[in-house]
Design a protein around this nucleic acid. Structure first.
Lengths: 211, 211
DNA sequence: GATAAGTGAGTAATCACTCATTTATAGCGT
DNA sequence: ACGCTATAAATGAGTGATTACTCACTTATC
């Protein structure tokens, strides 16, 4: 696990080593987050990375593959985090707290990559459409499965798991979007207690008492 | 006011008349929502609209102006709706219900334009940054002012109005995003009761009793 | 000396935008 | 009705700039 870092253009992604491949990825994710995949030229990526344009094509088949691999990295990280929460045995409240906390920490850990995810996921329908088979392939579908299991087990009243999941995620993700637009500042983690309270309220769970 | 219509490529925007200008706007908003401003060529807009490429420049200075005018239309419509809610005198609960209901109805009324707004607002920093002066210039800032007034008047406990506003809006807007990605279907208006309950819960308001 | 890493000029396609030209519309005296 | 004219609406080939990507080549590494 990495230490927490903010805002600097393009930390994280792959290991923060000094290889040219990592330089390209860090430059690309920063530019993609800022301008969108179609708003960024391969030339600008190579310039930002400080390498030649041709080198991009030694490590990535084409621009779209580069953009998709970066998106997949954060998409999978978030999905697996929610699946990990789902596997915990301490009850629904614990699972929800786990997700809220780790969502914020993943966002803060590599804010550039996270920003790329929330702003441009829709550019990759194959990642986000997610009709989903046995394994959830998106954060949303993983959360739906978690809530469905809780409903089936009687831990919360039955309802539209997909809708409730979207509402609960929105309590965290829209503030994240507001942070992108400059309407909120500081790390997301600073607001974990507020997010927890909000998500608990939306799901109709009893707030755990203060300490 | 117009009748409710769904999904068809590019209804709404300006009046749904048959003028070439309206044809261009409808084609553009559909393509911009689908592929982003930078992912759409002026040629493709003119083809989708069934006019020549040169005609675009009789009605709009350039591609970016066209994209910005369309975004401004929905951005202002949503902002003014929230300001209208703010002017109502029936109390905070009534204002919140008003906003939730009208947000859904505006989205359903011109889903293509609304989709363009939630997916690509960040492409226009000048519209979304909104440090805001006396008059709120974004839905978020309008909602913040409403909540701040409610807090000052003792209608709800004091807190971070900007954060709470983002959380509350997220209860409606993230499901809207989920609908864009195909994880939720049907008109947003179908979920108004659930959204109201969620927003009330996030804001710590008493749910009005069932009828 | 062999393989891998890295370069950047070159290519055909596409881009946003212009402008000389053509087509449609409107007004008006007869 | 009709022709004549002035203006507005609409066209699409043409412009230089930029695009994603290739490849013959040079440089570094073992």
């Amino acid at each position: 696990m990495s230490t927490i870092k903010y805002h600097e253009p393009g930390r994280g992604v792959s290991a923060v080593d000094g290889t040219n491949k990592a330089k390209i990825e860090r430059a690309a994710v920063w530019l993609f987050a800022e301008h969108g995949v179609d708003g960024v030229s391969t030339k600008s990526i190579s310039q930002q990375a400080g390498v030649s344009e041709g080198l991009l094509y030694r490590y990535f088949k084409n621009k779209d593959t580069l953009a998709r691999e970066l998106m997949r990295a954060i998409h999978i990280r978030l999905t697996e985090m929610i699946m990990a929460a789902s596997a915990r045995e301490e009850g629904l409240a614990d699972q929800v707290s786990f997700i809220v906390r780790h969502y914020c920490e993943i966002a803060d850990d590599d804010w550039t990559l996270f920003r790329y995810h929330i702003l441009h996921l829709h550019h990759f329908p194959a990642l986000s459409d997610a009709p989903a088979g046995e394994w959830p392939n998106s954060p949303h579908m993983a959360a739906v499965k978690l809530l469905q299991k809780a409903m089936d087990g009687g831990a919360m009243p039955k309802g539209d798991a997909s809708l409730l999941s979207a509402m609960a995620l929105g309590v965290v993700l829209h503030p994240a979007q507001a942070k992108v637009l400059g309407a909120i500042d500081g790390p997301l983690s600073a607001h974990i207690p507020a997010f927890e309270a909000g998500v608990f309220a939306v799901l109709g769970l009893k707030q755990k008492e203060e300490v």
